[in-house]
């Protein structure tokens, strides 16, 4: 399962969307990820916003918070995968219980990262996600 994307300047480029109700977290993820091939197309603060943004920008990679107002992350993951089965979703959540993780994975997430996280943990999780 490889990501498909059009090559840009001879290099593959993937569109990234960040979903988190916290501004700090959104900026933190954007700033900390070190993948040149990831190009941020937008950030969203809740599930509904994310869905709308997704329809407009068609991202390849998504980081997803779970506890958010107006449609939580779990439901949002399901909707995104319906829209684009090949999308790669990394759940970034403070919820550390296993049932939540399984639920997210079952809905179509591809990775799981617990908050708080270090830059290294984030990059490892993204690398794993795009493998």
């Amino acid at each position: 399962m490889k990501l498909n994307a059009a090559p840009v300047n001879g290099k593959r480029s993937y569109k990234l969307m960040i979903v988190d109700d916290s501004n700090i977290m959104r900026r933190r993820i954007e700033r900390s990820q070190q993948f040149e091939e990831l190009e941020l197309v937008g950030t969203a603060g809740n599930g509904e916003e994310a869905l709308d943004l997704f329809r407009r920008t068609d991202p390849d990679v998504v980081t997803m918070d779970l506890t958010m107002p107006r449609m939580d992350g779990i439901e949002c993951i399901g909707r995104l995968v319906e829209l684009k089965p090949a999308v790669r979703i990394l759940v970034i959540s403070a919820l550390a219980d296993k049932a939540t993780a399984v639920e997210a994975m079952e809905k179509g997430a591809n990775g799981f990262l617990n908050k708080p996280f270090t830059d290294r943990q984030l990059n490892e999780a993204i690398a794993e996600l795009m493998r």
Binding site: M1, K98, A101, V102, E103, M105, E106, G111, F112, R131
Partner: peptide, 24 residues
């Protein structure tokens, strides 16, 4: 949850370490 987890194990989406970490 257990049933979902077992199904996930058979998928190739998640690698072993991740699966281990979310073993419910």
């Amino acid at each position: 949850t257990a049933t979902k987890y077992i199904k996930l194990l058979w998928g190739d989406r998640a690698h072993e370490n991740l699966m281990k970490s979310i073993n419910p």
